[in-house]
Design a protein around this nucleic acid. Structure first.
Lengths: 154, 154
DNA sequence: CATTGACTTAAAGCTCACTTGAACTTGTAG
DNA sequence: CTACAAGTTCAAGTGAGCTTTAAGTCAATG
């Protein structure tokens, strides 16, 4: 069995488009060797890297953040299972936080919108202290306005 | 108390930037009347609409989808609590699905990356049948490759 | 009357994560 | 040798969801 794979082999095995792989390499998330022809040759372990990237994206991480995380892997050897485990350990917290956020969201779906009241004072769902929402573009989250008479019900 | 609010009043109460409110109006998610001066006057109930929009976005819905949902509200009267409840009822399923997805993700975090195996055959996490990931740009999800020798471990 | 502040519009700009296109080279099969 | 597939680079395009900018209007204040 070959020790390295072409870009399309990696693409098929990972489900990540070849163009995305080139983009990831450009962004420093993965690296490749080159064949004499100039074609990329990926070592097998980039697949695990790609799995990590895919996971991380599902958790809402940006590519830059993901790269920072990957940079923490040891550079003196191909990462072992333990290396990966260490890297992804703190993520369970992140996932738990997202689950909790969704559970609040679920509760608020009935309580907060459903009831027709939507009092900002009592709404524990639409508040800005949670991190599920993106920064940058997109609504910043429901902000409590202490000057408001009594929520939005008026 | 005023029955209508200016764009900045709405912005402060909702936490949605004025520019975003104009954008939403342009996209047909909210509507406003106009004062003689040409300034927007928002009826109070757009706040509830904005709450709904904020919720929906947290669930990963696109503005076009959200608009379609909002279009299902009755147009012959200002939506009641029941109207809103009906609209958001089916969302609990959506939230539950997302929670389940995250729980699989959490499990896979240890099993799948942590173990250092990442066998595509056994990985129930990185598979494309789930809907948490976006369509369009972004990785399409880990795709099972039946021709692969034995996962990525090689 | 000048200024300030809140608002308006249209158009352009931005971020993120890619994708697409054009022009080109390399490797393999017939 | 000719085809053709698979790879390359660089630049530009895409889509979502806004934000920013420029230029202007309107009402109230000093």
């Amino acid at each position: 069995m070959e020790t390295t794979l072409t870009i399309n082999q990696i693409s098929r095995r990972s489900g990540v488009a070849a163009s995305a792989l080139r983009y990831y390499e450009e962004r420093g998330l993965i690296t490749s060797e080159r064949a004499g022809s100039g074609h990329r040759r990926f070592p097998r372990h980039v697949l695990r890297r790609l799995a990590f990237i895919t996971f991380a994206q599902k958790l809402g991480m940006k590519l830059d953040e993901i790269r920072s995380e990957l940079d923490r892997l040891p550079s003196d050897h191909v990462p072992t299972g333990d290396d990966w485990a260490a890297l992804s350990e703190k993520w369970t917290d992140r996932v738990d936080a997202q689950i909790a956020q969704l559970q609040r969201l679920r509760a608020g779906l009935t309580d907060c919108i459903g009831c027709g009241c939507l009092s900002l004072k009592s709404c524990k769902v639409l508040n800005p202290s949670d991190a599920l929402g993106r920064k940058g573009p997109g609504p910043r989250g429901w902000v409590e306005d202490l000057d408001a008479p009594s929520g939005v019900c008026g």
